[in-house]
Design a protein around this nucleic acid. Structure first.
Lengths: 98, 98
DNA sequence: TAAAAATACTCCATAGGTATTTTAT
DNA sequence: ATAAAATACCTATGGAGTATTTTTA
C-alpha cells in the first residue's frame, strides 16, 4: 500500500467527499476514488457507504481511520527525521546550517 | 513512498546487505537496490555506505531506521485492524466467525 | 576468483488523466 | 438541473525481471 493512497482515504474520510479532497490534492476525482476502492479491495473491508451525492464512513471503519492517521503520521515522521539529519561534520556539531 | 519499499530499506538495514533480503523477499537484488536508492533520492539523504562487498549504515541513518520501523509497524496495524473489523451484525455481536 | 552491488536494458502493471454516464438532490 | 461518484478508456511512469559489468574481500 502506498502511503499517498492512504492519505487519499484519510482526506476523504475527513470531509466525507471524494470530489473535494481531489480538488485540494490537485488531482482528479476518478483516480482518487479508484485508489480508495483499491484499498477497500486490499483490506477486504468496505470503508465507505457511497451514494452519488454523499459519502459516509462505513460501519467497518471503526478503528480503521485512527490507524490510518497514525500510519500517515508515522510516514511524515520518517520524512521529517530524514530531512533534519545533519549531513556534514559541521552541521553535526550544530555550528550552523548548510 | 510505498510502505513496501520502506520494508526493503528496513530489511537491508537489519542485515547490512542487499542481496540477502532480496532472496528472503523472493525478489531480485536489482529492484531492491533501486528502490532503496529511490528512497535516498526522495529524502535526499544517503542511508548506506556501499561497497561491492559490504554495506554499512550511513551516518545520516541515526534516527531514520527507528522511524522507518515505526512507520512499517503502523502500516501493519492498519492492515491488522482492517482485517479484524467485524463485517456483519452477527460478527459485531461476537456470536461466531463468518 | 567469487560474491555482492551497480548498471543497462526490457516489459508490464498500474496510477493518473479525460470523457462520459449515472444518480441523488 | 446540478453536482458528485462511478465507469470506460487511454497513456505514461516506474517497478520488477534478466543479463551484464564492476569491484573488493
Amino acid at each position: 500500500m502506498d502511503s499517498r493512497h492512504l492519505r487519499y482515504f484519510v482526506a476523504a474520510a475527513e470531509v466525507l467527499s471524494f470530489a473535494k479532497p481531489a480538488r485540494d490534492l490537485h488531482m482528479n476525482q476518478s483516480p482518487l476514488s479508484n485508489r480508495i476502492a483499491d484499498i477497500e479491495l486490499e483490506v477486504d473491508v468496505p470503508l465507505f457507504d457511497r451514494s452519488s451525492k454523499k459519502v459516509a464512513l462505513a460501519a467497518a471503519d471503526q478503528g480503521f481511520l485512527p490507524q490510518a492517521l497514525a500510519a500517515v503520521r508515522a510516514f511524515d515522521s520518517v520524512i521529517r527525521v530524514a530531512r533534519t539529519v545533519p549531513r556534514s561534520p559541521i552541521e553535526r556539531l550544530g555550528l550552523h546550517a548548510a
